[in-house]
Amino acid sequence: MSGRILHIASNTFREAVRDRVLYNLIVFALLMCGAAILVGQISIDIERLVVVNLGLTAISIFGIVIAIFIGIGLVSKEIEKRTLYTVLSRPVRRWEFIAGKFFGLAGTLIVNTFFMAIGVFAALLYVSHHFQASDAGVLVALYFIILQFLIIVALALFFSSFSSPLLSAIFAFALFIIGTFAEDLRGFAALTHGAERWLATGAAYLVPNISALNVISQVAHGEPVAGQLILYNTGYALLYSAMVLFGAILIFEHRNLK
């Protein structure tokens, strides 16, 4: 990674931290403590199920909210406040700026997720007193959640490179929601015929496949995740976010700054 991208990324990270984004960790910690104590009083069998389900879902929701709300401002806020003038008049290429922003926010989310993951494992240890082999599945689910974040950050950046923060938030959030039904959409597209089929299939494949990246309830029930899916999801998420980032760069390269 070029030095400039790294500097832009670390400045983005520092901004998020100073804007108290990581404070969400406190809320999360309280949530996990509360849950662990509560389920401790119910049945032994569902403790693990509840902790994993609740913990991973919370991690995913917190992360998506951060990804969207910071992501939509990454470019538009800098254009609005004109902080970009003194960056882009330096030997920084526009694509480097976008890449730096992407890695900065992705890094913030990874750090955030890391701390939350510690919380989930602590809660697991608390309710079942020892780790078991199927807990490795939780790591896979966390990895998939991070892949989701990459896609959402790329989408938020993409929308933010040409529309207002509010519209960007709506678009990114809508795509995320539709994406959780991506597999249903693909199935539905296969039922149509003719030109409609082309359109529906195109649309179904354009939407990010968030549903394949969600294995929370599977791992909560202790079922293993196929190695093939891990490979497929990694390739898919990297390719999808790279394409979206590429689109963001294409648009941003040709933008007149206000």
Partner: peptide
């Protein structure tokens, strides 16, 4: 970029990252 490394620019009514 080789030229941009050798120039400086002060924008009108400058505004900077205010978290720094």
């Amino acid at each position: 970029p080789a030229m941009q490394a050798q120039i400086g620019f002060l924008p009108e009514q400058p505004y900077f990252y205010d978290h720094l």
